[in-house]
């Protein structure tokens, strides 16, 4: 089967996903700060006001608790809200709504009221934004049952995963990276979705499994090329969704390579990497030739100074070092 594809930016993929779903389903609307008349703080929603009008593309005041809660109420009445946080860092002021209400409504109401809502926006360090604006919320939020968390890596997944998120009957946290919005990739012309809970092997290899999500995957793929030259053939797994986590694909890979490195942009303590490491140790104990190694951001607030921020974030060099360290006895 031949498919027509086109080259688009990550932000276009996000917009296409939302626009196509809004054309398909009148229950879908977009709400957030500067999403309408300003055309989106990062131009993700550019042109959507013109097409869908102010009743479906809705500007809000700077009021995250208010509009996050409003979206939850609308979702309880079976609308399909997309709530944009300009940055996930700002979701913290709406923590009670997104963590106490959205994920628990179905359970607390004994199955009477679901919460089919998508919260989306930029997650992770944008580049010298300092401590308050550089949150990687996946470390904090992934311990809460009742939410799904997706982190797209390229335009194909950005569009396919976001469509899945919008169609999903449960609350989804959709974590984009400001640093990826201008990256390009090809997407099919026709309708497609990317399922949740299905990891993708971005690079096949035999010597060491590297697991990551979103932007750090670039470092992992670069590192894999560098390490290949040294004779270490890495398998790079894109988890795609943290919840649900496709641990099966990871286990299968580790059983083959016997080594595992997890690269996670959140802080190390009680992080996504900690959880994956724990599960790999649990399910692959007899297959591992070394304990799982982790690459996280450093355990300090995100610094402003360029040199400090670079030292703090995961990067290609750190991934290479972790793989060399974990496979030293190979």
């Amino acid at each position: 089967m031949t498919t027509t594809t086109r080259e688009i930016e990550f932000r276009d993929a996000l917009r296409d996903a939302m626009s196509e779903e809004m054309r398909r389903d009148k229950r879908v609307f977009l709400m957030g700060e500067e999403v309408a008349e300003y055309n989106g703080a990062y131009k993700v929603s550019k042109g959507m006001l013109d097409e869908f009008g102010p009743k479906r593309i809705i500007d809000t005041p700077i009021s995250e608790t208010g509009f996050a809660g409003l979206g939850i109420g609308a979702a309880m009445m079976d609308l399909r809200p997309i709530i944009e946080f300009m940055s996930w860092s700002f979701s913290l002021v709406a923590a009670d709504q997104i963590l106490n209400n959205a994920p628990k409504m179905l359970y607390m109401s004994g199955g009477q009221f679901g919460c089919p809502i998508v919260f989306r926006g930029n997650d992770g360090a944008g580049g010298q934004l300092g401590s308050t604006h550089s949150w990687c919320v996946e470390g904090l939020f992934s311990s809460v049952p009742g939410v799904k968390i997706a982190i797209p890596f390229d335009p194909y997944d950005a569009k396919g995963l976001l469509k899945t998120a919008i169609r999903d009957d449960d609350p989804v946290f959709f974590l984009e990276s400001e640093r990826l919005l201008s990256t390009k990739g090809s997407v099919p012309e026709e309708d497609y979705t990317v399922p949740f809970g299905k990891a993708l092997i971005r690079r096949a290899g035999t010597d060491c499994t590297i697991v990551s999500f979103g932007r750090p995957l670039y470092f992992c793929l670069e590192a894999a090329e560098e390490l290949a030259a040294e004779g270490i053939d890495c398998e790079v797994i894109d988890g795609r969704t943290i919840r649900p986590l496709d641990i099966d694909t990871i286990i299968e890979s580790v059983k083959k390579t016997n080594y595992c490195v997890v690269v996670d942009q959140s802080w190390p303590f009680a992080s996504v990497a900690s959880e994956i490491a724990a599960q790999v140790h649990q399910y692959c104990f007899d297959d591992l030739d070394n304990h799982v190694h982790r690459v996280n951001s450093d355990d300090v607030p995100t610094p402003y100074a360029y040199a400090l921020e670079q030292a703090y974030l995961p990067n290609t060099r750190k991934v290479c070092e972790a793989v060399r360290a974990v496979t030293y006895n190979a």
Binding site: F29, K55, G69, G73, A74, M76, M77, D96, N100, N101
Partner: peptide, 22 residues
């Protein structure tokens, strides 16, 4: 949670209006 239901209530009003109008 004290007060947390009021924004959700705003969402009920929003959805009521949205369903009728849109």
């Amino acid at each position: 949670i004290v007060g947390a239901q009021v924004p959700v209530g705003a969402g009920l009003a929003f959805a009521s209006k949205y369903i009728d109008e849109v």
